[in-house]
């Protein structure tokens, strides 16, 4: 788990990695599992209603994190499987890939989880996720009208996000 050295927004977004990482959708969860933001750019298949989908996604991340913490082959003391972990505690993961999509995941020290689902051939998206976190800090956290833990309804954040994710492809 990396903690960010400076809270200043990077002057320019990180250069896009390998081509073809077109975004499908993005989720932002807080540490209680509340979905603060859901953006969708290209999603032809929907198997569940939206609320169920968010719950399933949060559950998947939670369980995958306990799986990686327990499976970590480099640490001797791994604790018990299924015990909730604090952000930054235990071995986490940053992405997984299937034949149809790639999911990139980042957790901030305060437990904000940012999930970006892209084309499977997308490159390493850790830097872009940090940039998105910076956007969140700039346009959401610093907004005096925003109360923490409520869904994000910031037009400025959404437009900047859309623009940035489209630029990734």
């Amino acid at each position: 788990m990396q903690f960010f050295g400076s809270s200043e927004i990077s002057p320019s977004p990180p250069a896009p990695t390998a081509s073809g990482n077109y975004g499908h959708m993005m989720y932002v969860f807080n540490r209680n599992g509340v979905c603060l933001l859901y953006r969708e750019w290209n999603r032809p298949l929907r198997t569940l209603n939206q609320q169920q989908d968010h719950k399933l996604m949060f559950g998947l991340l939670f369980s995958l994190k306990s799986l990686t913490a327990k499976m970590d082959p480099t640490s001797v003391e791994k604790g018990n499987l299924g015990v909730p972990l604090l952000p930054g505690q235990g071995c986490s993961f940053h992405s997984f890939r299937t034949n149809t999509y790639k999911l990139s995941f980042m957790e901030s020290p305060s437990g904000i989880k940012i999930i970006l689902v892209t084309h499977p051939r997308a490159g390493d998206l850790r830097e872009p996720l940090k940039y998105i976190y910076n956007l969140y800090v700039e346009y959401v956290v610093k907004n005096p009208l925003y109360s923490p833990g409520t869904p994000i309804k910031s037009e400025l954040f959404n437009t900047n996000l859309d623009q940035y994710v489209r630029g990734l492809g």
Binding site: M1, H24, M25, N42, R43, P44, L45, L64, T68, M71, D72, P73, T74, S75, C91, S92, F93, H94, S95, F96, R97, T98, N99, T100, Y101, V117
Partner: peptide, 16 residues
């Protein structure tokens, strides 16, 4: 998000 998914092929964790 797309039909025809067969499950996770690669999981990249911090240490493995």
């Amino acid at each position: 998000p797309v039909a025809g998914c067969t499950g996770i092929e690669l999981l990249e964790a911090d240490t493995f």
